[in-house]
Computed example of a mutant assay.
Amino acid sequence: MATNTSIEWADKTWSPIIGCDKVSPGCDHCYAISTARIREHNPNPKISAAFAGTTERNEDGISWTGKVNLLDDRLTEPLRWKKPRKVFVNSLSDLFHAEVPDKFIAHVFAVMALTPRHTYQVLTKRHARMRSLLSSREFVALVDDHREQLQPGCGDFAWPLPNVWLGVSVENQKWADIRIPALLETPAAVRFLSCEPLLGPIDLCGPIVPGRGRPKLTYWLDGRPGWGPEQTDDRGRVFQRLAVGPRLDWVIVGGESGPKARAMHPDWARTIRDQCAHSGVPFFFKQWGEWGPAPFIVRVCDPDVGWKGTDEELAAAKGDSEARGATHVHTGHSREENGERRYWLHEIGHKPWSLERVGLPEGTAAIRRWGKKRAGRELDGQVHDAFPA
């Protein structure tokens, strides 16, 4: 089944696979689990069968069982879509999950190859399998076989597929360091990151060493410079031109939504935005999520003059400031837990209209739980909606 989607960077979702399991902290509050749980009990037997057995209730609530359902009847859906679309592939699973056979993945790529009018966005946390499969001649031959079965005499095709964007999810620096190099080693027309939910700071340019700047550049945003393949000029002389290696073509950032959402420090998003701008990489800010910036203090009057209105007006002004002002501070402080950095919030004890409040310490940010819709998509007053060319 394919559906129109509210995901800001896609027009449609295509889910020939249902089911998954958790592999890193970014999966902890996955929206797809609750979606699958609801549809597993849908009164329509075709829908409930597609989701059957994929979720379970345990001591942590609702979780994946690890069962993956392959839905052959959905494989050829894009062949019937005439209007070009941006299609998010497998929003309720991971195409490179260990339980998905190579042949099934090849069939998905064959359909994408036969529909160049669409742009497909494939996002994974299984970076190693993606790199291995898509670098394999045997897999490319398998894709070609499926193409011929679907449309005999369809002719040659280019690899990597020019209409397929490949991305990895990275929620913090640990997983950025692991997944991004694998993505850059994977054949792809467009490579992108989804830093959602962003659970910690990510430096895409290389770690800063005090007093030394960035001695170990990553070149993830700019491409590593080096020598290209040998060439021969018309006089028989062999030479090499300077070349730039693969780089990230697009970066998406977003905070977490849902009842148990973890807050994103605004500076984490700003850092990635600024690094993308410096390197000319399109940046897409998807959402703040449940938590978003709020004023640390909302003045209800001039402190030197004092309040000149009635008590009723003062109560109304204070109520307004409480509705708009910060309730928490994100300190950026963390602790090590199961090999991951875990960040926490400090609840503000004073009301946002208190005239006695002073400025926040450097590195902290005033935020509150607005809810996804009210928090919105503006980062420092601007919507960032850039896409790769």
Rank of each mutant, 00 (worst) to 15 (best):
L355D: 15
R212M: 10
P25D: 02
A49N: 15
V122Y: 00
K12V: 14
F104E: 01
D249T: 11
E356G: 09
T218K: 03
E148A: 10
P78I: 03
A316I: 10
A375Q: 02
T232F: 01
P388T: 10
K308V: 09
V383N: 11
P101M: 06
K308H: 14
D156F: 09
L142Y: 04
F387R: 11
G245T: 07
K308S: 12
H41W: 06
A49C: 07
A263V: 06
V190T: 14
I252P: 00
G376Y: 09
H41V: 01
R37F: 11
K103L: 03
V298C: 13
L92V: 13
Q151I: 12
S194E: 00
A277D: 08
A52T: 02
R235I: 05
V143S: 00
M264T: 15
T327L: 08
N163I: 07
V164W: 01
P352I: 13
F96S: 03
E378V: 06
S132R: 13
A243E: 15
R324L: 12
W307K: 09
T55G: 04
L204E: 06
W250H: 00
P43S: 04
A294N: 13
H384Q: 11
A50K: 01
S15T: 12
A269S: 09
R129S: 04
R212S: 07
P201D: 07
P210W: 05
G280R: 12
T124Y: 14
W159I: 09
P45L: 05
A128Y: 05
G376C: 09
W268I: 02
K174V: 14
K22A: 14
L114P: 04
E148R: 15
T3Q: 13
L345Q: 11
K67H: 13
V358G: 12
S63C: 10
N42E: 09
Y343K: 06
D28K: 12
Y120T: 02
S169P: 03
A261I: 03
Q275R: 07
V238I: 15
N4T: 11
R137T: 08
S279D: 05
I7H: 04
A110C: 08
I348W: 02
A182H: 14
K86R: 14
I105Y: 07
M112R: 03
E356Q: 12
A128W: 06
Q231E: 11
Y219S: 07
I252S: 01
F88K: 03
P229S: 08
R74F: 15
L142T: 09
E356I: 10
T186P: 02
P16V: 01
H41I: 04
G61T: 10
F284V: 01
R369N: 13
T13G: 10
T65Q: 02
E378L: 15
M130A: 14
Q240E: 08
P225G: 09
P259Q: 13
